[in-house]
Computed example of a mutant assay.
Amino acid sequence: MLKKLPKENMGTSDLGWLQSRFHFSFAEYRNPKNINFGCLRVLNDDLIHPETGFGTHPHSNMEIISYIVDGEITHKDSMGNSETLRRGEVQYLSAGDGIYHSEKNLHKSKDLRLLQMWIIPPKAGLPRLYGSHKYEEAQRYNKFLNIVSSQDGNSPIKIYQDVNIYVSELDKELEFEIKKDRQVYFMQIEGCANINGVTLDFGDAMEITCEDKITISPVTKSHVLFIDMPADLTC
């Protein structure tokens, strides 16, 4: 089953320094019928203007992954971590019983586009984790790059929840097998592609359930991200 989610139907916010598109209920966007998809609680597509950003704020009992689409992000947190990441690079934290952090675009002239995903952990109170990985474009060009996995997975970035997050920049058709009792949340980051015959433009998304594979046929050069997770229902 394929459920296309056009970007025009998503929640939005404009704070001047920050423009956001909310895939699920978040901040002032409240939709009781759109709280989550499986263990995926938040996917925000944020555009942060130069020399601005999120000041120090707390998180707890959530696994947070940031994927940098363009520009650069500078992270600082209460565990003593501080670093700057750029396009295609990934930062993550499992907040456990509590962590404070800030996320800033310190560049003087370039916008930062950031995808931030919140994954519900398998249980509360897990030990805090923080890390990042500086992936190269060649690792995701015309192939699926597994940027995040569970502790039992093969990605350099491992979180507690049973998920796999993949990205690709592609200009040829690719197929991905969906295993039994799994579902996928798919996002078209850049470009345009047909996903199992359904066209997604940049910013659109799709819920994929009860399917055994994804066929991605780019109409233009495409940049995509998808999250493979346990299914909510038995097909």
Rank of each mutant, 00 (worst) to 15 (best):
Q91H: 13
S13E: 02
P230M: 12
T215P: 03
V148A: 03
M1E: 14
F26C: 02
V198W: 10
L233G: 13
D111W: 01
G125A: 07
K76E: 12
L126Q: 00
V198E: 14
H49V: 08
V184K: 07
Q161C: 09
E137S: 12
D77L: 04
A138D: 11
G11H: 12
V224A: 12
I195S: 06
W17L: 05
S132D: 10
Y100R: 05
M206C: 11
N9I: 10
D70H: 02
N146W: 09
K4Y: 02
A193L: 02
R41K: 13
Y130S: 07
E63Q: 12
L145D: 01
G55Q: 07
G125R: 10
C192W: 08
S82Q: 15
Y100G: 00
E211I: 05
I35G: 15
V184C: 01
D152W: 05
L43C: 14
K143D: 03
V42N: 00
L145K: 08
Y135C: 10
T74H: 15
G96Q: 01
V184I: 10
Y160L: 05
T220K: 09
L233H: 14
R113W: 11
P122R: 03
F176V: 00
E28T: 14
N44M: 04
E173V: 07
E28H: 13
I73R: 10
T215D: 01
N34W: 04
N196W: 08
H133S: 06
P127N: 04
L174C: 11
R113L: 10
P218G: 08
I73F: 05
F37R: 03
K108Y: 09
S82Y: 09
E190N: 08
L225V: 06
S132H: 14
I178R: 13
I227L: 03
V219F: 04
R128F: 03
K7I: 09
A27H: 11
D201I: 08
F144T: 03
V184Q: 06
M229K: 10
N142C: 05
C192P: 05
I216N: 14
S102L: 11
D212Q: 15
I48V: 14
L233Y: 13
K143Q: 11
